[in-house]
Every structure is written in structure tokens, then in C-alpha cells.
Design a protein around this nucleic acid. Structure first.
Ligand SMILES: [Mn+2]
Ligand SMILES: [Mn+2]
Ligand SMILES: [Zn+2]
Ligand SMILES: [Zn+2]
Lengths: 149, 149
DNA sequence: TTGACAAATAAGAATTATTCCTATATAATA
DNA sequence: TATTATATAGGAATAATTCTTATTTGTCAA
């Protein structure tokens, strides 16, 4: 199943206006690249894709813009085991598989897991905004690669 | 509740021997520091603590040793939203609260969550090694800080 | 439609995090 | 105790992120 992210130009414009952000060509490009992205791009992923078509865009603009999008809730910054910050344009409830070999982070959905209940004690001390199941393991590709050992 | 990590010198020695690692003073120091650590230290956290008492220890040794410990399964590298790699000496089944304000990662336990079942479809394509619930939100301290706004 | 201005950008420098290099030291073994 | 493979310290190199500043641009009021 292919996951496609929402790309709603009107929503984007509205969010920018609500948060007093100017609607610049760079922001539009980055928003489109992001919503078109599979997986969970790093700043560098987005920068490189855009830089091919628009050689003048700067890395810093991509980075700053992605952080701004995070601030206004347009994108998530997801958990990963170090290295580079990774963004998730998919704000829907979903869960993650982390491959410990290649670092890939794969989405999966489960209404059962969406509904899991958090201990009461936790809710008393911690304001819960999002919950997700994170599974560590080895992806299909990496299993195949080491099959011959 | 205070979480204390196992510090079992015999276990440590055995693990080193099994994996053909020399038992060096540095490795012992790092192992002890790690098992004494609350929360989820970065390389720099461990390095700084040790460096106060042992000014000759090098950052690279701490970093390399922690990665070695990860390789032999003595410690986990945990999910975090970028910045620095974080280690978890607690290999028991447990779950995490991520504070999006201060970056703190807090442990909690729940036998109910330990037992959650993963969709069959996932297991077919992905070799599951560990599963954990990761909750994003705002910790008690950070809630207090912004209470006056 | 135009001008003023606050906000955003590009480019490169600076900072921070991690890894690599290599000469020296040392734990393990015989 | 001598040998040797492994590990370490220290510093250099690389990678990731953020900052600085001169310039440009989107927005809005006139
Ligand atoms: Mn995702
Ligand atoms: Mn933990
Ligand atoms: Zn993989
Ligand atoms: Zn906090």
C-alpha cells in the first residue's frame, strides 16, 4: 500500500496566514516536496531534491523552513536513533518500524494500536500529545542481504 | 520510583570475554558510569562525568566504547528527535515519554503495553526485535514553567 | 499601483556532533 | 616475561546544524 500525504494548497496558505508567515516560493516548494516524500526525509534529502531543479535554494532555508513547519504543526519531527533529524509529513495516527541495519523507518497502521491505553499515572504527570508504537528490527531487504551468511 | 540499572561485574566480564573484548580500565569505568546513569545519557554526558575524575580519558574512547557496548547488546541506542545519540542501559521491557520542550526522555513501565500485539502483516515482512510505546508530550517541569503564561 | 517595512533568503562562517588517523600503551596469552 | 593483537589518547577530519549579515521580497496601507 502506498501512503500519500495530503497536499492541500489552501490549507497551506491558511496555515501560513494564521501564523503570520509569508507565502514565499521557497516555502511552497518545500511544502510540495515534503508532501510528495515517501518515508521520512532528512533536511538534506529535501534540499538535494530541490537543489537539482532550483540551484539557488539554500540549505539553511530548507532547514529553517522545515523547523518552522514543525513549529506550526505542519510536519512532525520523528524519533530516530541519532544521525540526522527526520521529518514526517504524515500527521495521521500511525506507527513506525525502525530497521537497525539500514536505518529505514517504515510506516504501518493499526487501529488496535491507535487505541492503546496509557497508564493513568502517566497522564497525571505528563501532558500526552501523541503516542506511537516504535518497533526495532530488521527490514525485509536487510534480511535478504544477510540470508546468505 | 527510582529505576536502577543492573551493574553486574561478573556479567560484564563474561560479556567482554565472550566477544573478545579486552577488559580495560576505561571500559570498566564507562560500564559503571552507564549503569549508574539515570535517564538516557549522551556520549558527552558520560564523557564529562568521567573526565572530571579521570582527565586523561578521551572522548573518542567513550564514544567508541559505547558503540561497542551497543554492538554486543550491553546497552541500547534509543530513538530521539535528532541532536545527540542517546544510550539506554536499561534493557528491560519499558516505554518512553519524550518531552518536546526540554528533550528529556522518561521511562515508564506497563505490563499491558509490554503485551501489545503487532499486526500479523508486519511480522511477515519485518523481523521484530523490540517494541516500545513512545509518547510525545510535555513533562511536569515544563508544564509548570509555562503555567504562568 | 506603488512605496515602506518587516520578514525571509542566500551564502558562507561558526558551532556542535561524530568519526577517523596514528603513534603509543597495554591486556591477554603462551 | 616476551609477544602480539587490541585499545587508547590526542588531534585532525568530516558531518550535521545553526548563526550572521547583506540583500531581496511579500504584504499591506496609502
Ligand atoms: Mn511516519
Ligand atoms: Mn529507557
Ligand atoms: Zn533495513
Ligand atoms: Zn520537559
Amino acid at each position: 500500500m502506498e501512503i500519500t500525504n495530503d497536499n492541500n494548497p489552501d490549507f497551506f496558505r491558511t496555515q501560513c496566514i494564521v501564523h503570520n508567515l509569508k507565502i514565499t516560493p521557497q516555502r511552497i516548494l518545500i511544502y510540495n516536496e515534503l508532501t510528495g516524500a515517501k518515508n521520512h526525509p532528512t533536511v538534506d534529502n529535501i534540499y538535494r531534491s530541490l537543489h537539482e531543479k532550483y540551484p539557488n535554494i539554500s540549505f539553511d532555508t530548507v532547514n529553517r523552513t522545515l523547523l518552522t513547519f514543525y513549529d506550526i504543526g505542519l510536519v512532525d519531527i520523528i524519533e530516530s536513533p541519532g544521525s540526522q533529524r527526520r521529518f514526517d509529513p504524515n500527521k495521521e495516527n500511525h506507527h513506525h518500524l525502525h530497521c537497525i541495519k539500514c536505518g529505514k523507518i517504515i510506516d504501518f497502521t493499526s487501529s488496535e494500536l491507535d487505541a492503546l491505553s496509557i497508564p493513568l499515572e502517566v497522564g497525571k504527570h505528563f501532558k500526552v500529545l501523541q503516542k506511537r508504537v516504535v518497533i526495532n528490527g530488521i527490514c525485509e531487504d536487510c534480511q535478504k542481504k544477510t540470508a546468505g551468511l
